[in-house]
Design a protein around this nucleic acid. Structure first.
Lengths: 344, 344
DNA sequence: CTGAAAGCGCTTACAG
DNA sequence: CTGAAAGCGCTTACAG
């Protein structure tokens, strides 16, 4: 025997072993199937004894359900996403679903990767990348895979979405800075098309004005990266008015921004300028950064995603909707100081 | 029609369209199949026109090849791995393979995740987690999926491996520090069972002695994390001799260590103490860190992995082996100073 | 070089 | 409640 071909246990084997028909054995694995409870138990017991699991390929050929969720990632320089990716994967796997990845180096490679992935007919797709072109959603849906946008809205507002109230988050940051006596605010903007960026900015700026402060200045950093934040920090000196309180589009931008401000123009944080981030990634809590930030309620967001995934994998017609969770708490650490005393 | 069931194009459709048999159409997709070249071209042309792709589930039911590679991840607090994960995925997808993830929060959950993944009979598995128990490899191979350990050796030395010469890397660090006049060295150890940790330590310590320096002291940080590095930095003061040159098990440990040393005991880096990391993750180049470090030749490592993956997915019997690449260059940045002058 | 037929490992109407 | 049969979308000996 030249090839030691791997011989998996099949329904047939199990059926013979149990003295039942394959139909009966098969039914044991479907909760809704009509089968005597005693029979089901016997089958399941024996199955786990001999290590039988239905072949998912054969299953999905018939059921048209694959238990596969496609995950689209690209911009992983933001530590927020690796964290989400692995935790979400773990959660989904607990529900018996498996995660397939689509990833590409160049932004244009992602389309091809998604196509390849669609070949496996995932029950749904989850998009973690911030820069996915919107036509990708249509391609997925045409292939029978609804898509969930995690932590962002699709450009056209369609599709499924899991998002936080980023407008409210922006407002909170403005209120917090206003309460502590800050006067001249700044928003450091990242990827201009990202809904998170747009909403945070909007909430922050509007609330600042509502509190009677001048309309916040804005620096366009352009990307959700450390480097973009750093450059923004350096460019602070070009601003007509020197701000005393800043909200950055997210943590990684804030961390870069602080560094740029400190090294580039020698301002001290928080003595000279207060900075708030957004996300509360693990790095924000590091002693190097001690970043005050608005947390994302990650657990809730992921639980909601997992639940929606289960729904999409089960039911045929689920109405498209976007879940808007409330933002997590503002986590006070070391990058915001009170300006109260100096006011008086 | 209540259910708008998604109707995929099948071989039958394409065969009818072309006036051929399904056998012929099928053969067009297999380079080794016996088929007239003109026929193949016609089939492929029409297929791409109407968007037909063979159903991989039906395919693998027969071929026993799935084009799926299982990727096992767990410890993603180390930024090295997300980077590897996404770039490797992109590479593999270019070869027509898809990546399925196994991830778990608790270390013991990973076994279950791997089992679920094995259900899909991946052609091979790639292990990125540093803490995978060795029996997992046997489970995978028993299920017909050979496993590649990326950037580590399995405990028993079996399986496939892609690794760098970490002993040589450790030596280089020792030489570099010795050349610059350092005298009292320290190795900050991370996960004690990890082959990378063991080898780097060994190369570093042995070479230091070979250069006539006292045997380096060792702090056991215990993990490949920022927190462990930070704690190690704080504990520096407990050492009998204060070291002037340090190699940390990897970059993230080094970054934490530097922070701990600076904040905790007020030593300056590199004026009072030089620190070298390992990996050259993106973060090491950030202005906040400017970490001198020994780079991993990531491109080569990933290319080697992708090639091995292709081989494993194609051939039946590939001999188990571990590739030992040469380490990347020592990247000089800002955390090592010369002690030459003070020596004289 | 091509086609008809069997079969991969399952599920699911259809009878009983 | 259970079983025999058809069939999911493919590939691959086997004839011709």
């Amino acid at each position: 025997m030249p090839k030691t071909k791997h011989n998996r246990i099949t329904v047939k084997d199990l059926a013979r072993d149990l003295g039942m028909s394959v139909s009966t054995v098969s039914r044991a694995f479907y909760p809704d199937a009509v089968i005597a409870e005693a029979t089901r138990k016997a089958v399941l017991k024996r199955a786990s004894e001999i290590g039988y699991r239905p072949n998912p390929f054969a299953q999905s050929l018939i059921t048209k359900k694959t238990q596969i969720v496609g995950m689209v990632v690209s911009d992983l320089t933001n530590p927020f996403y690796p964290e989400v990716m692995t935790r979400l994967t773990a959660l989904l796997q607990q529900q018996g679903m498996n995660v397939m990845l689509a990833s590409a180096q160049q932004p244009d490679g992602i389309d091809e990767a998604v196509d390849l992935l669609l070949t496996y007919q995932p029950d749904l797709m989850i998009v973690l990348a911030t820069n996915l072109k919107s036509h990708a959603r249509e391609r997925c849906e045409a292939a029978g895979s609804p898509v969930i946008f995690f932590n962002r809205l699709s450009a056209d507002g369609l599709g499924f979405g899991i998002s936080c109230d980023n407008i409210e988050g922006g407002r909170r940051a403005a209120n917090y800075l206003a309460d502590l006596g800050h006067h001249d605010l700044l928003y450091v903007s990242a990827f201009p098309d990202a809904s998170t960026n747009i909403e945070r900015r909007q909430g922050f700026c509007e609330q600042a004005e509502r509190r009677g402060l001048p309309r916040p200045q804005v620096i366009e950093a352009g990307e959700f990266t450390y480097g973009a934040g750093y450059a923004a920090g350096l460019s602070l000196k070009n601003l007509p008015v020197r701000p005393d309180g800043v909200l950055c589009a997210n943590d990684i931008v804030a961390i870069g921004f602080i560094e740029g401000v400190q090294e580039g123009i020698g301002l001290r944080v928080p003595e000279d300028i207060s900075v708030i981030g957004y996300d509360d990634i693990a790095m924000a809590a590091w002693p190097s950064h001690r970043l005050t930030t608005i947390a994302q309620p990650l657990d809730e967001m992921m639980a909601a995603t997992a639940e929606l995934a289960r729904e999409l994998a089960t039911s045929a017609d689920v109405e498209q909707r976007t879940l808007h969770l409330t933002p997590g708490p503002l986590v006070e650490r070391g990058t915001v100081a009170s300006r109260r005393k100096s006011d008086e």
